[in-house]
Amino acid sequence: MTELRKARVATASLAGCFGCHMAILDMDERLIDLMSKVEIDRSPLTDFKQFTRRCDIGIIEGGCCNEENVHVLQDFRRNCDVLIALGQCAIMGGLPAMRNAIMHSDAPLRECLEEAFITGRNLTNATHNIPNDPALPLLLDEVYACNEVVEIDHNIPGCAPSGDIIYDTLIKLLAGKFHGFERETIRFD
C-alpha cells in the first residue's frame, strides 16, 4: 500500500492583525506532529506568494478591507478544496469592520480616511495627506466578512482562537471527523 500523501495547507492573513497566525504557532511542539501530516504551500509561514499546486485546506485570517484582500481570498477559494475562516475578523469582519459603523454619511470612506490621517485627535501626520501611493491597493467601501465574498466551509471562532482549538480542528478535519464544534468548546461565558 502506498503511503498517503501529506495534505497541502495554505494560509493567508487579510484584514487582520496576524494574531491568528501567531495562534497557529501557539500549538507549540504539536507543530512537529502536524507537519508529519501536512505540508504548507502558499502562506506567510513559507513566504510562498503563489500557489504551487491545488491545496486541500485553505486557512484565512482577517476579512476583506481592500481589493487585494478580495483577490487573495478569491484565489484561495479557487485553489483550495476546503476553506476555513480563522478568527473573528475572517468570520464577521472584526475590529476593522468598525468603520462600517460610519453609515450616516454621504462619503463614509472619505470621512474615515480624513479622521484617520487629517482631522483625528492625537495625530502625528506631518504631511496632512491621505496616503495614496500607486502601490497601495484600493480600499473597499466597507469591510466584508469572508463569507460575504466567497463560500466558507468552516469557521473557527475566537480572537484569537487558541492553539489547542486550531490543532484539534485541523487534526479532526484531516481524519475526516470534523463536524462542527460542541457548544461547550466555543462558549465564553
Binding site: 481592500n66 481589493e67 478580495v70 478569491q74 477559494r77 479557487r78 462619503a107 470612506l109 472619505r110 484600493l138 480600499l139 473597499l140 467601501d141 466597507e142 466584508y144 460575504e148 465574498v149 466567497v150 463560500e151
Partner: peptide, 16 residues
Amino acid sequence: DRTRATFDIQSAIENA
C-alpha cells in the same frame, strides 16, 4: 467557482 455572486467588486471599489 464558489465565490459569491452578490459581492460586486466594481461597486465596492468605486468610492476608493
